[in-house]
Design a protein around this nucleic acid. Structure first.
Lengths: 161, 161
DNA sequence: ATATATGAGACCTTATTGATCTCATTTCTC
DNA sequence: GAGAAATGAGATCAATAAGGTCTCATATAT
């Protein structure tokens, strides 16, 4: 088990969408900018989240992503496991078929228990809990950035200084 | 956090040495054969275990490894973290300095709690508990194998059939 | 019809893992 | 002291996965 960058991005994405509210359409580029996620990478992540039924994707002009479920009904575990697969802590737990003695193995049982405990912890946390607090996004409420793809002019850069 | 192959090997190695008993010298090749660990790989692993004070390495002819501590005094957490470093579940937890808002981040706290719980679980398990049960070694009590480097003759092979 | 947005997946770079190999060093035995 | 037997230390290498980018296809608003 390893929390990949993609999984961290997914969590940030869902937090951002949770703040927007269930059913509120938000463009990929807005999410990418605000949650500091590479835009193309976010596209892949959103596809996984959509397959899992967590978000809905709207194509075409003025398209984007929106949350399909209530933030209170989405657990941290769901989002994480959507990205990295079911959590396991070692290969033996992941591939019991390959471990002939896993049923009788004390080490195996320890890892199994630890894994169950970890999953339970993450299952208890839902995204309505995560939006109410200051969380892993650069700022909240969101700040206004320059339009995407437009290089800041000298004057606007000066404005920021 | 990810349990690497090296960490699994280390656990098996320490289990094997725990069965031998604290202070009982065992050659690297015997451990490698019995616990099914690549011998050269085991050398590196043992170096890490020695640095951590878990095993002692005897060089020279009739050298090998031996357990420096009582199996009851060695936790699964010790061995695992010796091999993979202190357990963390994501980068944010591992590098709080790089996360400006980690103190106030709800997600961060969740991971931190989960990590503490996981570490506590592994800390509770000591190797005296692991040797008493059938565990992640091919067989126990150990079987007699041919001397290392010597191909089994047809007759010895037949003896095993 | 066109501009704007995402879909899907190929592709590339980099880091890590797992493993091997070589030479140096240590120690036992004679 | 010499030589055999064992490990030390680290360079090296192949395989895998992660992280990210890019391109072309597709869908939709106007």
């Amino acid at each position: 088990m390893r929390l990949t960058r993609a999984a961290e991005y997914a969590v940030r994405c869902v937090i951002y969408l949770s703040r927007q509210g269930q059913g509120v359409l938000t463009s990929r580029h807005e999410i990418a900018r605000q949650a500091d996620i590479p835009a193309h990478f976010l596209a892949k992540i959103a596809q996984d989240l959509a397959k899992a039924g967590l978000v809905e994707i709207r194509q075409g002009a003025r398209g984007g992503f929106l949350l399909s479920k209530n933030p209170a009904a989405i657990s941290l575990l769901e989002v994480v496991e959507t990205m990295i697969g079911e959590i396991h802590l070692n290969d033996c737990v992941a591939r019991p078929a390959g471990c002939k003695i896993s049923d009788h193995c004390a080490v195996h049982r320890v890892w199994l228990d630890a894994r169950d405990q970890l999953r339970a912890s993450l299952r208890q946390v839902s995204f309505d809990q995560l939006v109410t607090d200051t969380s892993c996004l650069p700022s909240y409420p969101k700040i206004l950035l320059e339009p995407e793809g437009l290089e800041a002019t000298a004057s606007t850069r000066n404005d920021l200084q």
